[in-house]
Design a protein around this nucleic acid. Structure first.
Lengths: 256, 256
DNA sequence: CGCGTTTTTGACTTATATCAACTGTAGTGG
DNA sequence: CCACTACAGTTGATATAAGTCAAAAACGCG
C-alpha cells in the first residue's frame, strides 16, 4: 500500500526495517473518491495527511472567471498535504482526475515520525523539497518553453516520477489525463495541445492513446524538452545521459 | 542584521529570548557581492545557508538558447538555500540584482536549531513552505493571468513581503528591478512590460520611478491582480479586506 | 445502440513578441 | 560643466504563436 512512497523515499535514503514498519503503519484509514471530487479544498485545514494510494489527482486553483490552473500532478506514492502540518490551511485545492484511493495519515503519526524517526522525517522533508523544486521548474516550463517543449517536458517528468515510484519498468504509463487536463497544467488550450501532440507523434517521439502514453524515443523527447532530471533530486540514482532517464542498475527491488 | 528574518518568522510564531539569541548568532560571516554576481550556481552544494541581509537577488535558470526565467525574488530576510540542507545540490542559480550582503549560516547552526530549538526549526520550515506556496502561485500567475494582472500581482506580493519583513510602513518600496527583470519573472518582453506599466500608471494604481514603487491604490491593484494574500500564510496577521494588505494593528515592533 | 465526452479539423482572431529606432537618465572623466 | 557612454525606458510597425469559435469525427460507457 505504501510501496510507491517507500520506493520513492529510498531514492533519497535507504530506510531500515523499523522505519519501513513505521511508514507502513502510518496510514490508518483509506478513503475512496470518485473522479472529479476534491480530496481537499483551498481554505481547509485537513486533520490528517493524505497519501495517494491509487489514481491521479492534481493541485489546482481557480480564478474568478472560472478558468483553472493545474499546479502539479499527484500520482501513487505522493503526499498531498504534508506541508499543511506547518501551514494552517490549504492555499490551493486537490482534485481527483481519476477514481482515487487515499490513505489518511493522522497528524500524530507525522509527529511521531519527526520525534522518533529522524531519518524517515528527513526523507519526508526531502520529498517536500522535491515538490518545491518541481513547482519552480513548472514556472520555467510554462514561462520559457514553446508549447511543444512544454508537453514534452511534462511527459519526461511523469516518466521519471513513475520510474522513481517503481510503477513502471518500461516507457509506458497509464495516461488518464485528457488533452484539456494537459492544457490546464501547461497553460495551453485543448485545441493547441491536440496539435502539439500530433507533432510529437509525427516525430516518432511518443505513442498516445486514450489510456496509455509510451515514450518511444526518450532521448529525442528529452532534447525537445531540454529536460534535465537534476531538479527531481534523485541523489542516488542520478539521471544519466545514456538513453534511460534514470539509471536502472541502481534500482532496488523491494519485496512489498 | 537578522531583523527582517526575525520579523518575518514572528508572523508565524512568537519566538522567545533564547530562540532570538540563537537566530541572531547564526550567521557567522558576511559576504559582499556586486550586482549581477551569483550567490550560488546550479549544481553547487553550498557549505552554508545564505541569508539575504542587504539587496535584492533572484532565483533563476537559463535555457540553452540563453533566455532566462526568474523563478522568485529574494529580499532582505529571505533564506536563499535552506532546502539544500536536504537536497544535495542546487537545481537553479541565485543571482544578485543589486549589490548584496549575505550572511553565511553554517550547516552546524542549522542542525543545532533543528536539535535544540524545535520551535525555531518549525518557523524556518514554515518559511520554506511559504516559498513553495509562492512558487506554486507564480505558476498560476504566469499561466492564467493577463500581462496586466501579472504585473499587478507581483507588485502586491512584493508589497506584502516588504511589510511582513518590517521593511516598510507605507506603500512605497525600493524598486531596483528593471523592466527587463520584471519581464524575465513574468514571462513578458521588456517592451510589453513597459506598455503594461503605463496602463497601471494611467489607472492611478501605481507610481513607479527608477528607484521607487508606490502602490497608490492597494485595493484597485488587488482587484486587477485578483490578489489574495492567503498563499503567503501569515497565520497570525491574515490579510484583511480593508485597504491594507496586512493588518497593521497586529504588527509587533521589535527592538533590534 | 445511443449519448456524453474527448479528439480532431478548419477558419479566423488576438495578445504578446519581435525588430528597430529614438529618448531619457545617471554616471564618468576631461 | 559639458561631452561621452551605457544602460533603461519609450514608441511605432509588423509578425506570430497560440487562442477562439464551431462543427465533425471518434471513442467508450451503460
Amino acid at each position: 500500500m505504501i510501496g510507491p512512497l517507500l520506493e520513492k523515499l529510498q531514492h533519497y535514503k535507504d530506510l531500515d526495517k523499523h522505519e519501513i514498519k513505521m511508514l507502513r503503519a502510518a496510514p490508518t484509514q483509506e478513503k475512496r473518491l470518485e473522479r472529479g471530487s476534491y480530496i481537499i479544498e483551498a481554505g481547509e485545514n485537513p486533520p490528517a495527511v493524505h497519501l495517494m494510494i491509487e489514481g491521479w489527482a492534481c493541485r489546482c486553483k481557480m480564478l474568478s472567471d472560472g478558468r483553472e490552473q493545474i499546479m502539479g500532478y499527484l500520482i501513487k506514492g505522493d503526499l498531498c498535504d504534508l506541508h499543511v502540518t506547518l501551514l494552517s490551511r490549504m492555499d490551493h485545492s486537490i482534485r481527483t482526475i481519476t477514481a482515487t484511493t487515499v490513505g489518511m495519515v493522522p497528524e500524530e503519526s507525522i509527529n511521531r515520525i519527526i520525534e522518533d524517526f529522524p531519518r524517515l522525517a528527513r526523507a519526508l522533508f526531502w520529498s517536500l523539497m522535491v515538490d518545491e523544486a518541481i513547482a519552480r521548474h513548472w514556472i520555467l516550463n510554462i514561462g520559457l518553453r514553446s508549447a511543444e517543449a512544454r508537453v514534452a517536458h511534462l511527459f519526461c517528468e511523469l516518466l521519471v516520477r513513475f520510474q522513481v515510484a517503481g510503477l513502471i519498468q518500461d516507457h509506458t504509463l497509464e495516461m488518464p489525463l485528457t488533452q484539456a487536463n494537459l492544457g490546464e497544467a501547461l497553460s495551453l488550450t485543448p485545441v493547441h495541445v491536440n496539435r502539439v501532440l500530433q507533432r510529437l507523434r509525427q516525430k516518432g517521439l511518443i505513442r498516445l492513446t486514450r489510456k496509455e502514453l509510451t515514450i518511444l524515443d526518450p532521448e529525442g523527447l528529452k532534447n525537445v524538452a531540454e529536460f534535465d532530471a537534476v531538479y527531481l533530486h534523485l541523489d542516488k540514482n542520478l539521471a544519466n545521459d545514456k538513453g534511460e532517464l534514470i539509471n536502472k542498475k541502481e534500482k532496488r527491488i523491494l519485496s512489498l
